[in-house]
Simulated assay, not measured.
Amino acid sequence: MPAPDLHSMLLQASELAATKNASLEAVCRREVDIERALAAVRAEKEVRAGSAHSANELVVALQQQIQRQAGTGPQAQAGAAEESGGGDPPSARAAVRRAIRELLLEREEATTKEITQHIQRVLPNVNTKNTSPELTRLVQQGLLVRPRAGVYRLGGEWAIAESR
């Protein structure tokens, strides 16, 4: 093939390659944009799932509270026994509950570790090995909600009293 024809073909091939490269770059940019959008959607999904879970826990807690007040729930007797003892000095459990509530009044949420550290600071003579079961009990009673695993915030009567 003569050299001018080869140069002409080279020019055409170069133009074709430039067009194809530009097209590939545009597709790659779209892919990056879509991946960012998908990551944002996934993050929003996690937040909304946590909110939905928290709302569902609040519904269950309120239902349990209503049952306790009506005296029909399985925890009605346990709740009544815990509330009795009017003139007695406050129990360690009551002190722990107050410490948990005080911490969560100061901040919106706290982890189990942060709550345990707070209890150790304000109640140095209290054994903190039962903190996790106490948190679970408070969630079951509707006084706390768990928006995510290991994270707690005020719920039920405690949240309602705080919002007044």
Rank of each mutant, 00 (worst) to 15 (best):
I119Q: 01
I119G: 02
I119M: 03
I119A: 01
I119P: 00
I119D: 00
Q120Y: 00
R121F: 05
R121S: 10
R121V: 05
V122T: 06
V122S: 01
V122Q: 00
L123M: 02
L123I: 01
L123Q: 00
L123E: 00
L123F: 01
L123D: 01
P124Y: 04
P124T: 05
N125Q: 14
N125E: 07
V126F: 01
V126K: 03
V126S: 04
V126M: 02
N127I: 12
N127Q: 10
T128H: 07
T128Q: 05
T128E: 07
K129I: 11
K129L: 14
K129R: 12
N130C: 08
T131G: 04
T131L: 08
T131P: 02
T131E: 03
T131C: 06
T131N: 05
T131S: 08
S132L: 05
S132M: 03
S132Y: 13
P133Y: 14
E134F: 10
E134R: 13
E134H: 09
L135T: 06
L135D: 00
L135M: 08
L135H: 02
L135S: 01
T136I: 15
T136W: 13
T136H: 13
R137K: 15
R137N: 14
R137W: 13
R137L: 15
L138T: 05
L138M: 15
L138V: 07
L138F: 12
L138K: 03
L138Y: 08
L138C: 10
L138A: 10
L138H: 11
V139L: 08
V139I: 06
V139K: 10
Q140C: 12
Q140L: 14
Q140K: 15
Q141T: 07
Q141C: 10
Q141G: 10
Q141D: 13
G142V: 04
G142Q: 06
G142W: 08
G142Y: 13
G142I: 05
G142P: 06
L143P: 00
L143Y: 08
L143T: 06
L143H: 11
L144V: 09
L144C: 09
L144G: 01
V145I: 15
V145H: 07
R146S: 15
P147G: 13
P147W: 09
R148P: 01
A149E: 07
A149T: 12
A149W: 06
A149F: 14
